[in-house]
Every structure is written in structure tokens, then in C-alpha cells.
Write a protein that binds this DNA or RNA. Structure first.
Lengths: 212, 212
DNA sequence: CCACTGACTGCAGTCTATGTAGTGATTCAC
DNA sequence: GTGAATCACTACATAGACTGCAGTCAGTGG
């Protein structure tokens, strides 16, 4: 379920960063796993940060050294996906049309979600909790917004003539909005990983059609 | 579902629900005004609920009898009027194409939101704070998000052959995502109300193009 | 071997938010 | 009118998220 020792950060280059760093990542992973398990058991609201820390055998204070807020422990891998999309945009081939870049970037994110979050059930848990816990929902949206801003800026820089700032924002907003909405609907319908991925791709294709 | 919403804005004198109700609305208004003034003075983060309550000459406990959370005091009158969009969908004329219904519904929300926010003196502050305070940002979009499911369902019912559940979700998600993202970008750029509205319309048109 | 960094700890404190038990002013039933 | 019910509001207490500070100690690098 939770792959051990898997490199969930960027390219596994930074893996050899000494014992100290490895310990830190082990603590972080322990916190995440403890949190997920407790959330599944007792529900988000009935789990305190102190409990999570206790289950991970660290001080409560340490939790906040790793995560800005209680909610963030569930969004731990979100940053990686944004980086993937940014990279995909940066790697634009000469004369590659906008629609292709957009699809490639989005497909990267979908693929990563399918790889890491969907099989582990993390995506399902997150969707279920996000639907029922307002604080989490808010935080999730906030994350999406900052990510969207980054992506929009990158896209605007990649196509300075074609896309003004507003259009770039709208395009990214449409893409993220469509993909997450369809994913959420599929998840709530009880679809399996493959079906969820297909729903996301379908949404992506829909938005891609608006850029010709 | 809807609070008694005759007039949620300008001084609606005719609300003669007895002395008790009038007193309640007076303290509510006092809380809002105190909050706005303090937020302008010291910034959102540096104002505590206790201070707001104190300035309004009520107990801190009373604040939470009127508002679910600190953020809500600024969004008190900024309800998302989903009804208008739902109504616009329900009023679909025979043979009216999907894209037109979509645009009509979205335009309703844009126009109404903006019209009712403009005359209020708080609109500017709310926009500025919504663009800069993450917690508010999230709370505001959260309201739109809750509307998405309703809208998607309505759209699916209006076009049962044309739109399956996933596509309807994707479409609504794309629309809301695009409009929100472009509005936020415009706001953060310092645009005035009219420019923000134009940005929203531009985003709407972009998404509308994906349905032919 | 030793200075230094940095992950982690414990504690005290702030602030949001809620539960509980009241009080007093309105409102209603008779 | 008068007693009872209602309800906004209060004071008090508490949970729990999060922070600042002053450390400890293991890991790192010279």
C-alpha cells in the first residue's frame, strides 16, 4: 500500500544526502502514514496533531516542522506534480502547438496521480475527506490556486504572443477545474483507478478542444 | 437552503420582524463594520476575533453565533447565487444549443455577483483581501465549488443525451475554474471592477468554445 | 578531535472555535 | 395583564491548531 523507500521526490538524485537527511525523510514518511491510518480509522476531525505525532513517535512540535498545517499532511505529494507539469511546459519543442504542450503537461500530472495516489487509495481518501471537511477543502483549493498561478505564468512565458496573462490563467483554470471536477465525480461514483484516469483524460480532451 | 433573502443588501427597512430581530441585525451589522474597519487599519491577520467583538461591544462568543468562522464576516453578503444559474439552465428554450445555455447561465452569475457587489463600499476591501489573504481566497472559491455539483447535475438533466455525468462535471468545472482563475489574476493585477468582469467574460468565452 | 549545523524536543503562550450554564429582555398563550 | 416560553447574549471553561524560544544531541565536516 505505502511503498517503502520509493523516491517520491524529484529525480532520485538527492537520495545520497547523508544519514541526517534520510532520517528526516523517514520521520516525514512516518508522519504521513500515521496520519493517513488514523484519518481512515477515526475520521479527520477526531484525530489531533498530537495523536499523529505520537503514532509516529515524534514530538507534536516536529509535525509542524514538516507541514505547515494539519491539512498539508494529505497534500504532501502535490508539489511534485506541479513540477512535472512545469517541466513539461519548459520542454516545449520548437513550433510545438499550444494544445499539444497543454495536453502533454496535463497528461504528466494525470499519469503521476494514477501512479502514486490512485493505487494507494490516497486519492480516494483525500476526495472523501475533502468532500466532508471544509478546512481540508479550503486548503486543497488554496493549493490548486497557487499551483495554477505558477502554471499559468509558465504557459504565458512559453507562448507570449499567443496567450495574454488572463487567457493563460483562464486556460489553466479550465484545465485544472475540469480534470479535478471529473475526477471527483468519478471517485464519488466509486470508480476504480483506471476509470478515474479515463475520466480525467476525457475532461482534458474537452478543454484541449477550446484551443485550436 | 436559502436564507430568507428578500434584500440582503441595501437598507431594507421593511424587515419588521419585531424588536428582537432588529436588535440581532444591529449587532450583526456592528460586528461586520467593526471587522471591516479593523481589517483596514491593521490587516486581516493582525485582528483577532476578540478585538472585533470588543469593538462591536459584544462578547467574543457572540461573534460565533453570527458567523461560522472569522473569514465569514467578510463574505456575509457575498452569497453565491447558484439559483440564477440553475434557473437559466431550467429555462432552456426548445432546441437551444448547449453552448448558449452554458453562456447564459454563467453570464447570469457573473453579472449578478458583480452588480450586487459593486454598490457596496465593502466590495473593494473584500476584493483586495480576497486577493491577498489565502484563507479568504479559499473560502470564497469553496462556495463556488459547492455549487459545481448542483450545476453539473442540472446540466446533465437538461442535456441527457448530449452530456454524460463525467462530461457535465468536466464542463462545469472548466467553466468555474476558468472564470475564477481569470478573476483572481485580474484582481491581483490590480484591475478595477469592470476589467475584472471583462476578464471573467473572456474566460467564459474560451470555455464555451470547447462545446460546438 | 572539535566546532558547527540542523533535526528534534519541551514548554509556555496565542488564537480560533465550541460546549455549558446561565441571565434578562422580548414575545406569546391564556 | 400575567406567567411561560423563547432567544440573543454573556461568562466561564475547554479543546486543539499553531508559534516562539531555549534548549539537547546526533551527524557532518574540517
Amino acid at each position: 500500500m505505502h511503498q517503502f523507500g520509493r523516491c517520491n521526490k524529484l529525480p532520485c538524485v538527492a537520495e545520497k544526502h547523508g544519514l541526517r537527511e534520510r532520517k528526516k525523510q523517514r520521520t516525514r514518511q512516518a508522519l504521513i502514514e500515521a496520519a493517513v491510518r488514523l484519518f481512515e480509522d477515526k475520521g479527520y476531525d477526531h484525530v489531533t496533531v498530537a495523536e499523529i505525532a505520537d503514532a509516529a513517535e515524534v514530538s507534536p512540535r516536529t509535525f509542524f516542522l514538516h507541514f505547515q498545517a494539519k491539512e498539508d499532511v494529505l497534500l504532501a505529494n502535490a508539489d511534485v506534480r506541479v513540477d512535472l507539469a512545469l517541466q513539461a511546459i519548459a520542454e516545449r519543442r520548437a513550433e510545438e502547438p499550444l494544445s499539444e504542450v497543454l495536453v502533454r503537461a496535463t497528461d504528466q500530472m494525470i499519469a503521476d496521480t494514477w501512479d502514486s495516489d490512485l493505487p494507494s487509495g490516497l486519492a480516494t481518501l483525500r476526495a472523501r475527506l475533502a468532500a466532508s471537511v471544509p478546512a481540508l477543502q479550503a486548503r486543497l483549493l488554496q493549493r490548486y490556486l497557487t499551483a495554477q498561478a505558477e502554471l499559468a505564468q509558465a504557459l504565458h512565458r512559453a507562448f507570449p504572443d499567443r496567450l495574454d496573462t488572463i487567457t493563460a490563467s483562464a486556460l489553466v483554470g479550465a484545465m485544472v477545474g475540469a480534470v479535478s471536477a471529473s475526477a471527483l465525480t468519478a471517485l464519488q461514483r466509486g470508480d476504480g483507478p483506471d476509470e478515474v484516469r479515463d475520466a480525467m483524460r476525457q475532461a482534458m480532451a474537452l478543454v484541449a478542444r477550446s484551443v485550436t
